[in-house]
Design a protein around this nucleic acid. Structure first.
Length: 790
DNA sequence: CCAGGCTATTTTTTT
DNA sequence: AATAGCCTGG
C-alpha cells in the first residue's frame, strides 16, 4: 500500500485497494491499519478544520456512532457535510469506497463531489457510493438483479412510462379508465412504494380507495407486468433493495460491512423506504450521520416523513445531536422574522438561529390591489435596485405556484428586465427527447415494450392502432415482448399487406441499428437512427412554432451523449438523471417557486402572493389539515431565509385564478411575523389595505369597510354560509380551512356588488361561479362569495 | 387514420 | 383562458 501523507491535499483516492468494483468481503471489511490510523493522529491538525465554528467542528469530528446534525438555514450545512467526508478520508478512517454518501438530487450529489474534490484535491473517482438514493439503489439492484427476479440490464421507467403501463393494466382489468385514471393509481402506488408497502401489505382501506377495492390487485398486476418487461420504476429501486436485504441476509451483511461510514444529506426529506434502507445499512458499523433541518421539510406531499428526523434519537440509540445555529447568511431582522414565524409550528425539534451580522433592513410587507399591480410594484423596486448597482442575479422572486410567474414575466418583458425561470420542464422530459430515447432503448433493449410502442408509429408509418393491438395480442398470446411478436408477425399473414410491409421495414431498420451498436460510436449511431427512422425529417416537415426548437434539442441531445462511454451508460444516466446542468451565470432576475428555492440564497428576495388560499394553499389545508398548514409555514420559512439582505413580502386584494376573480385576504403568515422585524410599506397612490393586525393601527387610505371586504372577511372567519365540506378544526378548535360555500341564494338578473368591478347584474350561475355583467368593467366570471347583494 | 371538436383540469417536484 | 387529452365522425 502506498505510504500515507496526511495533508489536506494528497492522492488518497488513488491508493484505495477496494476501488475495483467487486472485492472479497473480508478485505472490504478491513480498514486502514492501526499504525496508519495512529500516524494520522500524530499529524498537525488539518487546516480545513480551522475555518469551522465550534458546533461545526464538533459535527465534523464526531465520526463514530450515530450523529444527527440539525443544520438551520444558512448555518453551513454543506460545508460540514463535505468537510466531514474529507476528514473521514484524510484521517484514514475509511477508504473512499467504504463511505456511503446519499443525497436527494443529482445536483446535490454533483456539488458534493465537486467540493470534496476541492478539499482533498484531485478526483473523487474513488467515491463510488456517493449519489442519490435512486442511483445507489439502482447500483445495488444491478449487482443482485437476479435476486429480485430481474436481469441486470433492467430498464428504469420514468413517470410517463409508468402511467402508460398502468393504463394498460387498468384496461386489462376491464376497469373504466375514465372513472379511475391511471394518474391516480400511479400516485397511489407511488405512495405505497414510498412507504415500502408491497401489494400484499397495502392497508385495506387504502386499497379500497381505487376502483372499488381493486387498488392492491392492480398494484400486483402492475408489478407483474414490470417483471415481464424486465423493468422497474423509481420506487422499486429502493423497495427491491429492501426485499433483497430482507430475503438475503448475506447480501445485506456484505453491504453493512462495506459501508463503514454513512452520510445523509437533507434527512428531513427521506420517506419511509429510504429510512428503512438507511437503517438496515447502518446496522453494521452504526456510523451514520444525518444532516437536515426539520423546519425545512417541504416535501411531505411526496412522501417525506418529518418524523424520520424527529425520532432519530430513538431510532439510533446513543445518537449525538449537534445543532448548527449560527447563521452566516441573513441579517438579524430577516432571521428573527423567519424564526418568529416558524415558532407557530408544533412538531419541531427547535433551534435558535443567531447571527453576528449588523441589524440590516426590516422585512417589508406591502398590500397591493391585484396581481398585476404586484408585478408592477416589484418591477419598479427592481429598477430602483438596478440603478443602485444591485446585480440582478442576486434578486429572486419566489412564488407559491407557477401560474404566478406569468405576471412577472409579462412585466419584465415589458420593462426589458432580463430574467430566468428556474425549474420548470426538464430537458429529458421533452417529447422529442423521450422519443429519441425510446429509439435508443429499443435498439439496446429489444424487449422494451414501452419504448417499442412509443415509436412504432412515430413518424407515421401506417402502423396505427389496429396494428399495435394485433401486436399486443400476439405478444401476450406467446408470452413474449412486442418486438419478438413483431418479428414473428412479418412472416405470417395476420397483418394487412400494407401494415406488414411497413412493419418489415421497421424491424429491419432496428435490426440493422442493433448490429451497429457495438461497431459504431454511440453518438454516430444515434444520429443515424434519428435520420434513417425519419424522426428528424418528421420535425423538419412540421410547420408549427415548436418544431425548430425540437430539432435543436435533438442536436443538443446527441452532443450531450458524447460524455458517455456507450449507449448503455447514456441510457442509465438518462433514466436516473432527469436534469441537465447548464448553470447560467448571466445577470438576470431569478424567478422560481418556493420549492425550487430551497438551498439557494439571494441578496434580495421578493415573496409575492401571501394570501389566504394561495399561501397557505387552500389545497394543502383541505387535504392535509394542520399538517398541511405547518408544511406551508415551513415553506414560508424557507422563503424568508433565502434572503441575505432584504426580504419583501406582498399580497394582493384581488387575484385572478383560472380566469376567476377572487377576492383575497392577507395570509395568516403575515400576522405571525414578529412586529419588531417588519415594516409595512405603502405606495402613495395605491389603493391598499392592511393585514388584520394592522387594522386598528390606522392603515391610511384604505376603504376596507366596503361591503365586499366585509363579506370576504366574514367568509374566511366564520361558517355563516353553509360550507360544502365540514370545516377543518384542529385539536385547539382553531379553524384551519373552510371550503367555498355554494352560490346559494343568488338568482339570475339580480343586481350585485363586487369589490373590484363595482355594480353589475347576474347573467348566469354555475355552481359557485357567477357570470356577471358589470356596469363599468364588462362581463366577468366571479366567485359568488365575493359578490354582495345590493 | 386523421382532424377537429369536446371536456376536464389547473400546488409544490425528484428520481 | 388556456391547454391537453380523448372521442367521434368522416
Amino acid at each position: 500500500m502506498a505510504c500515507v501523507h496526511v495533508h489536506a491535499k494528497f492522492p488518497i483516492l488513488m491508493s484505495d485497494p477496494f476501488d475495483l468494483g467487486d472485492i472479497p468481503e473480508e478485505e472490504a471489511a478491513r480498514g486502514p491499519s492501526i499504525s496508519e490510523r495512529a500516524a494520522a493522529g500524530v499529524a498537525a491538525p488539518a487546516p480545513y478544520l480551522e475555518n469551522l465554528n465550534d458546533p461545526q467542528r464538533e459535527a465534523v469530528e464526531a465520526l463514530d456512532g450515530p450523529v444527527l446534525v440539525l443544520a438551520g438555514a444558512g448555518t453551513g450545512k454543506t460545508r460540514v457535510l463535505t468537510t466531514r467526508l474529507a476528514h473521514l478520508l484524510n484521517t484514514r478512517r475509511a477508504w473512499p469506497s467504504q463511505v456511503l454518501a446519499v443525497t436527494f438530487t443529482n445536483k446535490a450529489a454533483r456539488e458534493m463531489k465537486q467540493r470534496i474534490g476541492a478539499l482533498i484535491g484531485g478526483t473523487v473517482e474513488g467515491m463510488q457510493w456517493l449519489g442519490t438514493f435512486h442511483a445507489l439503489g439502482a447500483k445495488i439492484l444491478r449487482r443482485h438483479a437476479e435476486l429480485a427476479g430481474l436481469r441486470s440490464d433492467f430498464t428504469i421507467l420514468d413517470t410517463d412510462d409508468q402511467i402508460r403501463l398502468m393504463k394498460q393494466v387498468i384496461q386489462a382489468a376491464d376497469i373504466d379508465e375514465k372513472r379511475w385514471p391511471a394518474r391516480q393509481l400511479a400516485s397511489l402506488i407511488d405512495g405505497w412504494k414510498n412507504k415500502a408497502l408491497g401489494p400484499d401489505q397495502v392497508p385495506k382501506g387504502e386499497g379500497f380507495a381505487f376502483a372499488n377495492g381493486k387498488g392492491a390487485e392492480l398494484y400486483a398486476a402492475y408489478q407483474e407486468r414490470l417483471k415481464t418487461l424486465n423493468a422497474v420504476d423509481f420506487g422499486d429501486l429502493l423497495v427491491e433493495n429492501l426485499r433483497i436485504f430482507q430475503e438475503h441476509p448475506e447480501v445485506l451483511e456484505d453491504f453493512q460491512n462495506r459501508f463503514k461510514y454513512i452520510l445523509v444529506d437533507e434527512y428531513q426529506d427521506t420517506n419511509v423506504a429510504q429510512y428503512l434502507w438507511l437503517r438496515l445499512l447502518a446496522r453494521g458499523h452504526k456510523n451514520i450521520c444525518c444532516v437536515g433541518d426539520d423546519d425545512q421539510s417541504i416535501y411531505g406531499w411526496r412522501g417525506a416523513e418529518v418524523d424520520n428526523i424527529l425520532k432519530f434519537e430513538t431510532d439510533f440509540p446513543g445518537a449525538k445531536v449537534i445543532r448548527l445555529e449560527q447563521n452566516y447568511r441573513s441579517t438579524p431582522h430577516i432571521l428573527q422574522a423567519a424564526s418568529g414565524l416558524i415558532t407557530a409550528n408544533q412538531g419541531r425539534l427547535g433551534k435558535t438561529l443567531w447571527t453576528q451580522m449588523n441589524e440590516g433592513e426590516k422585512v417589508t410587507v406591502k398590500g397591493v390591489w391585484d396581481g398585476e399591480e404586484e408585478a408592477r410594484a416589484i418591477g419598479e423596486d427592481i429598477e430602483q435596485f438596478q440603478r443602485k448597482d444591485h446585480s440582478l442575479s442576486e434578486i429572486a422572486i419566489l412564488v407559491r405556484a407557477s401560474f404566478q410567474m406569468r405576471e412577472f414575466e409579462d412585466r419584465f418583458i415589458n420593462l426589458g428586465l432580463p430574467y430566468r425561470v428556474i425549474g420548470g420542464p426538464r430537458f429529458y422530459e421533452r417529447m422529442e427527447i423521450r422519443d429519441a430515447n425510446a429509439y435508443f432503448r429499443l435498439v439496446a433493449q429489444p424487449d422494451d415494450d414501452l419504448a417499442f410502442e412509443r415509436i412504432i408509429n412515430k413518424p407515421k408509418r401506417g402502423l396505427g392502432n389496429v396494428a399495435v393491438q394485433t401486436l399486443h395480442q400476439a405478444a401476450r398470446a406467446q408470452g413474449t415482448s412486442m418486438w419478438r411478436a413483431a418479428r414473428a408477425l412479418i412472416d405470417s399473414e395476420e397483418l394487412k399487406p400494407q401494415a406488414r410491409r411497413a412493419l418489415t421495414t421497421f424491424v429491419e431498420s432496428v435490426e440493422r441499428w442493433r448490429k451497429l451498436l457495438p461497431a459504431l460510436p454511440h453518438t454516430e449511431l444515434a444520429e443515424q437512427i434519428l435520420d434513417e427512422s425519419g424522426y428528424t425529417e418528421m420535425w423538419q416537415n412540421d410547420k408549427t412554432a415548436e418544431a425548430p426548437g425540437r430539432l435543436d434539442n435533438l442536436k443538443e441531445l446527441v452532443r450531450s451523449m458524447e460524455q458517455f462511454e456507450n449507449m448503455a451508460g447514456y441510457l442509465e444516466h438518462v433514466s436516473l438523471v432527469m436534469d441537465k446542468d447548464d448553470q447560467e451565470t448571466d445577470d438576470k432576475i431569478n424567478l422560481m417557486t418556493l420549492h425550487a428555492a430551497k438551498g439557494l440564497e439571494f441578496d434580495t428576495v421578493f415573496l409575492p402572493g401571501w394570501e389566504e388560499g394561495l399561501f397557505p394553499h387552500q389545497r394543502a389545508l383541505d387535504e392535509s389539515g394542520l399538517a398541511g398548514l405547518e408544511e406551508e409555514r415551513r415553506l414560508a420559512y424557507v422563503g424568508i431565509t433565502r434572503a441575505k439582505k432584504r426580504a419583501k413580502i406582498s399580497f394582493a386584494a384581488n387575484r385572478r385564478i383560472h380566469n376567476l376573480w377572487q377576492n383575497s385576504l392577507p395570509s395568516r403568515f403575515i400576522d405571525e411575523l414578529p412586529e419588531a422585524n417588519v415594516e409595512v410599506e405603502q405606495q402613495g397612490d395605491t389603493y391598499s389595505y392592511g393585514p388584520s393586525r394592522f387594522d386598528e393601527g390606522g392603515f391610511a387610505g384604505s376603504d376596507y369597510d366596503s361591503p365586499g371586504w366585509r363579506r370576504a372577511r366574514a367568509n374566511a372567519g366564520s361558517t355563516s354560509t353553509p360550507p360544502r365540506r365540514a370545516p377543518m378544526i384542529d385539536a385547539q378548535a382553531t379553524l384551519i380551512a373552510t371550503s367555498a360555500p355554494d352560490a346559494e341564494g343568488f338568482a339570475r338578473g339580480e343586481r350585485v356588488f363586487h369589490q373590484k368591478f363595482g355594480y353589475g347584474r347576474i347573467e348566469s350561475i354555475e355552481g359557485t361561479k357567477l357570470t356577471v355583467a358589470f356596469e363599468k368593467a364588462g362581463t366577468k366570471k366571479v366567485i359568488s362569495s365575493f359578490v354582495e347583494r345590493t
